[in-house]
Design a protein around this nucleic acid. Structure first.
Lengths: 154, 154
DNA sequence: TAAATTAGTTCGTATTGTGAACCATTGTCA
DNA sequence: TGACAATGGTTCACAATACGAACTAATTTA
């Protein structure tokens, strides 16, 4: 009984990746690019924040954004507040593709959970939130929210 | 309120990958190698079955197993029933490392869900099973498990 | 037995991901 | 003010990941 639960979690992780892969394939995007574009549909995001939400090292993100930029999907703009920083935003083409990818992911994941009773759905969401919060607290790694408060000493 | 749920799912996916990454790092394994070894602690598994559970193309799996074999973690043995097929099994060293990784992953994921009330936990597990089953049915791709057990939990 | 499938490998290629070293800007503080 | 640490990103070299196409060998089908 113990193992099956973790296996379920692992499979769920695969499934999410799979969904990004499926959706991305339709738009000729890699799963990672699809994730990146989905993150940007809400507006420009800074590189540092992207590394946190995507759980990537900064050098990895540079490459990912480079390739997306080369394909004309995203563009870098200077952060007016901090001349070291860049904001990544969607180009018109990126906007189009990103919206398709975003909607596709959402539609598929929604469809998968659509069969669940509503209260199960909500419970699932809050349970996941709890897990995420627990993980954040045990690792000491601050959550994506750009709160400047150092979560842990040292 | 719609988007937050999918975001939670996506983050959960990242988290699972992260856990394999963390645990793997301790044993000097990549996340993918850690997953592979974890799958093999129960005994030898055929290549084709591995491609299904890991959601990899066969050529990708060949490479993954090759590298693990080169490190002395796994070995290939012929399938006595089908001379085309191979079984992948852990070497003694792989057994040692794999057990550590497996236990590590389990411990961390268990810890993350340990805070949840028991009934939430069970609900979460069954909800995930439902999602997985739904995904399997919509894609038409057969689940990893061979036909001996019905996909829907009783 | 010929033809179609299946199991895996090989090969070429693009992508992903990391850490170390580095530059420029910003923040700190004496 | 000026030294100096910290931060934001890039570059580089490198290993691992992932895929599809083409291939060999064994198995199944007709």
């Amino acid at each position: 009984m113990v193992a099956t639960f973790t296996i379920a979690l692992v499979r769920l992780g695969h499934l999410v990746q799979q969904v990004f892969g499926d959706v991305g394939r339709d738009q000729d995007l890699t799963p990672q690019q699809a994730q990146l574009l989905c993150l940007l549909v809400g507006g420009p995001v800074g590189m540092t924040e992207l590394t946190r939400t995507l759980h990537l090292e900064k050098s990895s993100l540079t490459g990912l954004v480079d390739r997306a930029e080369k394909r004309g999907l995203v563009a870098r703009t200077r952060d007016s507040r901090d001349r070291r920083a860049w904001l990544v935003e969607l180009t018109p083409e990126g906007e189009r593709v990103g919206a398709l990818a975003h909607d596709g992911v959402e539609a598929r994941l929604e469809a998968l959970t659509g069969e669940l009773p509503v209260e199960h759905r909500e419970l699932l969401a809050s349970a996941i939130d709890g897990i995420l919060a627990e993980y954040a607290s045990t690792t000491g790694r601050p959550r994506p929210q750009p709160d400047r408060t150092p979560a842990t000493p040292t």
